[in-house]
Simulated scan of single mutants.
Amino acid sequence: MALEARVEFLESRLENALANPTNSSTKGRPEESSSTTFPESKNSVDDLTQAFGCFTLGDTGELRFFGASSNFSIIQNPSLKVASSLEARNRGIAAAQQNPGYFEPSEELQDHLLSLFWRWQNSWQYIVSRESFVRDLYVEKSGRYCTPLLLTAIMALSSRYSSRLELRMDLADPNTAGTIFARQAKIMLDCEYEAPTTSTVQATAILGLYWASIDNEGLGFMYIGMASRMAMNLGLHSDCSHYVAKGLVTQEDVEERSIAFWGIYVLDK
């Protein structure tokens, strides 16, 4: 289907070119061409923007980007079948919970770590929208802006700011604070790779910061690089405002995508 669509697209461009040949007699006469106005064709603009790729919707309502090298970039079907983000997320959660030593913090400890994250980390390395995350965590609980992976990654990094002993794998070694959360997040991430969302990108970048904080900068930069590539795959760098006008995504989604992209852009530099 994708190949047929590309052939049809190219044939229509060829027919259009043959129907409107360039008048070679006007070449070299700038005085005539300068007085000629060329009305902007909406179809031409659409063709140009189409050449750079298009978006499709995943099962969580997330936009996914298909670049110009993909045949899917010329199929205008917002419900094009893509890998299920929900299935990948659920597999990751199940795998982490089955891992020996799985640790689920109390609400008090979770709130303590989130408070540290908002105050000392996200305040200057802005990757996550606090308002959207907190509302989803405590009120909506939709898993759109706050996912188990993102929450666990945040707790792994913010544990580095805490002196509480229950966060350490080795009570005598403060450098082990957050290790248990990082391990659980890594297991979840291994499943979410195949169908990432914006929260997957954010979590990967935050895990990169965690690895760097324990003096493993090589692994940290690798995770940040993966976050950058996933961001490009999701088209976080692209303007999707017209999808808001169509009602396919919300303005809050667009803002969250922008926050994630520019936060990771700064980290990757």
Score class of each variant (00 low, 15 high):
83 A>Y: 02
107 E>N: 11
75 I>P: 02
266 V>D: 03
76 Q>R: 13
183 R>Y: 01
155 M>D: 00
261 F>S: 08
245 A>W: 00
196 P>D: 01
187 I>R: 07
258 S>Q: 08
257 R>T: 00
57 L>G: 05
12 S>P: 00
180 I>L: 09
176 T>Y: 01
9 F>E: 14
143 G>N: 04
16 N>D: 12
43 N>H: 07
231 A>E: 01
17 A>L: 11
180 I>P: 00
247 G>D: 02
230 M>S: 05
82 V>Q: 05
29 R>I: 12
130 R>H: 07
22 T>A: 09
228 S>W: 10
139 V>E: 14
79 S>Q: 12
163 S>N: 11
71 N>C: 08
100 P>A: 10
229 R>W: 00
206 I>P: 00
16 N>C: 04
100 P>V: 07
130 R>N: 07
241 S>H: 05
99 N>A: 14
107 E>A: 14
243 Y>F: 11
162 S>I: 03
108 E>W: 01
123 S>R: 09
130 R>V: 04
130 R>C: 05
73 S>A: 14
66 F>V: 09
124 W>H: 15
241 S>W: 00
209 L>I: 05
95 A>D: 11
107 E>R: 10
210 Y>L: 04
227 A>G: 15
96 A>P: 02
38 F>E: 12
98 Q>T: 06
142 S>A: 13
201 V>K: 03
124 W>N: 15
154 I>K: 06
258 S>A: 12
156 A>K: 03
224 I>T: 07
165 L>S: 11
76 Q>Y: 01
192 E>V: 07
192 E>A: 12
122 N>L: 03
152 T>C: 13
213 S>N: 07
44 S>D: 13
59 D>H: 10
189 L>P: 02
60 T>K: 15
131 E>S: 13
60 T>E: 11
129 S>H: 07
115 S>Q: 14
211 W>A: 08
57 L>V: 12
246 K>N: 06
170 D>A: 10
240 C>S: 15
108 E>P: 02
38 F>C: 08
85 S>K: 13
144 R>P: 00
249 V>G: 07
253 D>M: 10
261 F>V: 05
170 D>W: 02
127 I>V: 15
44 S>C: 06
68 A>S: 13
127 I>E: 00
259 I>R: 13
9 F>K: 15
126 Y>F: 14
219 L>F: 02
188 M>R: 10
211 W>F: 13
85 S>G: 05
237 H>K: 10
54 C>W: 01
1 M>I: 05
40 E>G: 13
169 M>I: 05
34 S>I: 11
219 L>I: 09
35 S>L: 13
125 Q>S: 13
73 S>C: 13
45 V>R: 10
223 Y>H: 09
